[in-house]
């Protein structure tokens, strides 16, 4: 019985907001939380579990990490380096389908959140 990737303990930071990075990560076991610093406190954006990925924006942009990702309990995480992943995508573009699906899903969720925020504002 064995896990793959690298282990992180509860509360350990895997990706730090503001750092530069050239990898994306896939959760192999356990859960992680995605946080953003907001007025001195951490605002939780999402909780990700087995099979979910994070840090994928580094594959497409050269911006710094947009959020912090922290282990929630013990987790195992596998690293996919940008260069080798992009090579794989060049050989088999369908490998990026899942990332595109997830990103499109996130845009949809953001649209809904925006609409809700706009509705709240106009109700005030």
């Amino acid at each position: 019985m064995s896990e793959l990737g690298k282990p992180f303990r509860d509360g350990e930071v895997i990706v730090q907001q503001g750092d530069t990075g050239d990898c994306m990560y896939v959760v192999q076991k356990g859960k992680v939380e995605v946080l953003t610093a907001k007025g001195g406190a951490d605002l939780r954006l999402a909780v990700l579990g087995e099979g979910d990925f994070f840090g994928e924006m580094a594959l497409f942009e050269r911006e710094v990490r947009s959020a912090t990702v922290r282990a929630l309990g013990d987790v195992w995480v596998l690293t996919l380096e940008k260069k080798s992943f992009l090579r794989k995508v060049q050989e088999d573009p369908s490998l990026a389908f899942r990332i595109l699906e997830k990103m499109s899903h996130r845009i949809r969720e953001l649209d809904i959140a925006l609409e809700e925020a706009a509705a709240r504002r106009s109700a005030r």
Binding site: G51, L78, K88, R98
Partner: peptide, 10 residues
């Protein structure tokens, strides 16, 4: 292992 991870297969 890496391809499977990208496919969502753990």
């Amino acid at each position: 292992v890496q391809n499977l991870a990208a496919e969502g297969i753990v």
